[in-house]
């Protein structure tokens, strides 16, 4: 009889071991690109005069995921998916970039994000997202042609509150779970690039030299876990074009953690 009890205990231990093993495998299969932690480096004066510490993030949006160290390059998964990625301070394509779709920023801080958009675009399915929402001044700073070689504006810089809904490349939209805390909601449309995009960073005739550049600043509230995603339907060949790249974390969506 004692042998039976022992066997039962062994089964329980073994069973939970199997569960832990499978869990570890499934968790590892997430293929998480890791979290980019932004540190306060500067200060920002909001329109109401309050001064906040400021962090800066520089992102690129590519027509495919062949730009660097994580996804499509080197034969990884889904080279044909559109993808966000960490970029250099002037929109450079970083050959060693992890995808950079998970971010961590401090609470009660001004976050300034600059997005260089290398992809073309079409019409949004909901023009709500053609408007700038939730930034500190209600606006975004926009340059239609940014010269990545000269590292300067190739067209005039302007303040925008919205862009035509049929010229959107992608959007950067942060939202979260409704709880007792203040909610962060930021959505900024990213104008399409006029130059047709092809290839990968390292190829001949790779990404365009003139991406669009959009800069915006928002103030974070209390600590919290948010997500961001693109609200432009760019998962081609799927229902409502929200499958494929749009439904896989690390391409057009990621975590946005407000902490510390």
């Amino acid at each position: 009889m004692n042998k039976r009890i022992f066997a039962a205990l062994a089964t329980v231990v073994l069973g939970f071991g199997v569960i832990a093993g499978i869990g570890t495998y499934v968790a590892a299969a997430k293929n998480d690109p890791g979290v980019t932690v932004a540190e306060a480096a500067d200060s920002y004066t909001a329109p109401d005069g309050t001064v906040y510490p400021q962090v800066k993030l520089s992102l690129n949006v590519y027509p495919n995921s062949l730009f660097g160290g994580h996804h499509g390059a080197g034969g990884g998964a889904h080279p044909d998916y559109v993808s966000y990625g960490l970029g250099g301070p002037n929109g450079e394509v970083l050959s060693d970039a992890q995808t950079g779709t998970n971010f961590q920023v401090p609470a009660h801080t001004a976050v300034t994000i600059t997005v260089y958009q290398y992809d073309s675009g079409e019409t949004l399915n909901n023009d709500y997202f053609a408007h700038v929402r939730g930034t500190a001044d209600g606006k975004a700073t926009f340059v239609q042609r940014w010269d990545t070689k000269a590292k300067s504006n190739a067209s005039t810089e302007q303040q925008i509150t919205n862009i035509p809904a049929d010229m959107v490349g992608h959007t950067f939209t942060i939202h979260g779970i409704s709880d007792k805390k203040s909610q962060l909601f930021v959505s900024v449309p990213l104008m399409m690039s006029n130059d047709e995009e092809v290839g990968a960073a390292e190829e001949e005739g790779g990404y365009t030299q003139f991406p669009t550049k959009t800069t915006f600043t928002f103030i974070t509230g209390d600590e919290g876990e948010y997500v961001w995603n693109c609200e432009f339907p760019c998962g081609d060949g799927t229902i409502a074009r929200f499958g494929a790249a749009m439904s896989t974390m690390g391409y057009m969506s990621g975590h946005f953690i407000v902490k510390g």
Binding site: G176, I177, S178, Y226, F242, S247, S253
Partner: peptide, 11 residues
């Protein structure tokens, strides 16, 4: 409703 269903919330 897909990937971020859990986050489709607001106030």
């Amino acid at each position: 409703c897909g990937l971020l269903h859990a986050y489709m919330q607001n106030k």
